[in-house]
Each structure stands twice: as C-alpha cells, then as structure tokens.
Amino acid sequence: MPLVRNGAAVQDPWTAVTTADQLDRSGPLLVTLDLWRAHRDRLAGRAGPLGLRLSSDQSPALVADDLDRFDLIALEFPKFTDGRAYSYARLLRERYGFTGEVRAVGHVLRDQIAFMLRCGFDALDLDDRAAAGWDAATTAFSAWYQPATDGQAPIPTRRRHAVPAARRRRRAAVAAGPAGNGAPTRPGRVGGLRRHLGLLIGRLRTTRPEPARHSERT
C-alpha cells in the first residue's frame, strides 16, 4: 500500500501502535484515540512527532483542544461508502485550522481521490491500482461548483472573473495590432503585459453572461 502525496509514492515514516507497550518507540508515532486518552501526559511530553488515528465514528471535535500536539491526523474509511471523514477533514482544516498532515486510511479507492483532496486530505493510503490512477483521477475535472478546502476558485467565482468570449476576441484583435499592416504578429512583451492587465481587469469586474433570448432557447 503506497502512501501517496501530491501524486508521488512516499516513504511512510510513521509507526502505528495500538497497545500501550509500544509507546516507548522512537520516531513518529501514530496512536489511537484510546491510547491518547489513556496516556495523554506521557504522549504530550514525548520528543518525537505524534499522530492520531481516528475511526469513522470519532470526530476530531473530540480532540479539538489537543490538535496542536499532533503532526498527523489519520482518518479511517472502514468502507469507501462511509463518508463521515470527508466532513471531519474539512472541519480539521477549516474549523480548527489544522496544518499538519491529514491522511486517508482504510478503504480508499481511486474514484474518491478527487473528493478527498478537495476536503483537505493531503496524503492517501492507496493500493497500487488506485495509486496508478492518480493522474486520471485528479485531472478528470478542471473546475468544481462548490467552495471546499482545496483553495481552488469554484465555478461561481470563476464565472465572476471570466472574460466573456466577445471581449476576449476584441482583446486578441487589439493585441494583434491594426489589421493589414503587414507586420508579423508575435507574442511579445507588450502583448503579454496587455494580457496580464486584461486578466487583472477581468478579475476585478463582475461579468454576467447574457441570458438566453426566448426565441433561441433550447
């Protein structure tokens, strides 16, 4: 099972432990909620990195006050159809401002990768087959409708910043210079600057596409 981050399989330095006699191990240690609760003082004072694994019925709200002690929160998918951890991941990022690693573990399939990344997971425990599909899974859609945790502008925001096709054509004509002057057109500094300015202006303006005329509706 490769651990995949940003599309690349990476070494997993974490040791997952489930019993108290394993807590003395050195290096990054991934503990369960039960272990954390039972050995909190001992673990909090530990030198090495500490991670917490939460099952799908354990909300990060249970450890909201302790989150700055953890470098990793691993959220479990007992079955890929159990979608609770999508909410947990968003809460970790958006509500609690958790900046460490949020890892998806358990039954994690290729067709969930895009949703997981959008909800704030940044490391996924995938099988080889799913890992091989990473690129296809993350490029299937160029934009999404709703704001999430991935920092990408959702479609409604892109629309407000989009330059309508008519204006794009006008701008292209301007950049190409007066028609018929014989000068070869090449992408130059001025054109690039103009494009850049145009984009900026596009961002500042709220544009509204013309609603369809009724005679044309389909």
Binding site: M116, C119, Y145, Q146, I155
Partner: peptide, 13 residues
C-alpha cells in the same frame, strides 16, 4: 443543483 453537483463532502451520505 450547482452547489450539490459532485459535492466532495456529501457524495457518500
């Protein structure tokens, strides 16, 4: 419709 379409958090309710 737009908000709910392939909502990343609510596709496995």
């Amino acid at each position: 419709r737009q908000w709910s379409t392939l909502h990343p958090e609510f596709s496995f309710l």
